[in-house]
Computed example of a mutant assay.
Amino acid sequence: MRTSSILTGGALVLAAGFGLAAPASAAANPVVIQPNPVAPGGQFSVFDGGNCKGKEGLATFKTGATGSDIPTVKLATLKNEVGGVGTVPASTKPGAYEVSVVCDDGKGNVEGPFTGTLTVSAAHPKGAVKTGLGGTQSTGTNLAAGIGALGAAAVGGVWVMRRRGASGQA
């Protein structure tokens, strides 16, 4: 690995972690997060919003004045923007997290920070959806009743068809 790459990577980590990069211009596009909101344990993509001139960067996450348990995402060229994919840890608390993206402009200079907001939603509910007889059901009793009703209808249909054939009716 070249020394310049190591130094650039170190500068990006310092800028992202300690806010040492120059402030972004007022005309900067917001950071794009998809999907947003994300449930704990879910994956998301983060993009620079077209602000970075280089091909790599870092996205960090914090809530208020503190950090967060959402890990830093390394960014690279992705879908004609600088972006990356991350995972919200299952233990992450719901709320709004500030996203800060800094990039290397390809000449060793730091661009950003560019900011956005990642919203972590409440955890996905567990178990079957309580929708009555028309929805997905996971209980064995309801499944057995449905199979029994279909079986009875099939047997009845066969019985009616055989009786028609035996009596000569069309």
Rank of each mutant, 00 (worst) to 15 (best):
M1F: 07
R2M: 04
R2K: 05
T3S: 11
T3L: 07
T3G: 11
T3Y: 11
S4Y: 11
S5T: 09
G9W: 13
G10M: 08
G10K: 10
G10C: 12
G10N: 09
L12Y: 14
V13C: 00
L14K: 09
L14S: 13
L14E: 06
A15G: 03
A16P: 05
G19H: 02
A24W: 08
S25Y: 04
A26C: 09
A27T: 15
P30K: 05
I33L: 13
I33H: 05
Q34E: 14
Q34I: 10
Q34F: 03
P35F: 02
N36P: 04
P37T: 00
P37N: 02
A39W: 02
P40Q: 01
P40A: 00
G41A: 02
G41N: 03
G42R: 00
Q43H: 12
G50S: 05
G50P: 12
K53W: 02
G57Q: 02
G57C: 01
A59G: 06
T60L: 08
K62D: 02
T63N: 10
T63F: 14
A65G: 15
G67W: 10
S68I: 04
D69M: 06
T72A: 11
V73I: 10
L75T: 08
L75V: 07
A76D: 08
A76G: 08
L78H: 06
N80H: 12
N80F: 15
V82E: 06
G83R: 02
T87R: 11
V88N: 14
V88L: 07
P89Q: 05
P89R: 08
T92V: 03
P94S: 00
G95M: 04
A96S: 08
E98G: 12
E98D: 09
V99M: 07
S100N: 04
D105V: 08
G106P: 07
G106F: 04
K107R: 04
N109H: 09
V110S: 01
E111Q: 14
E111C: 09
G112S: 05
G112N: 01
T115K: 08
T115W: 02
T117A: 05
T117R: 03
L118C: 12
T119A: 03
T119R: 11
V120W: 09
V120K: 10
P125W: 07
K126R: 12
K126Y: 03
K130F: 01
T131S: 03
T131G: 07
G134Q: 09
Q137F: 11
T139F: 15
G140Y: 07
N142E: 13
I147W: 08
I147F: 11
I147V: 12
G151A: 15
A152D: 03
A152R: 06
A153S: 12
A153G: 15
A154M: 12
A154T: 11
G157C: 07
G157K: 01
W159V: 11
W159E: 08
M161V: 13
M161H: 05
R163M: 01
R164Q: 10
G168L: 05
A170G: 15
A170V: 09
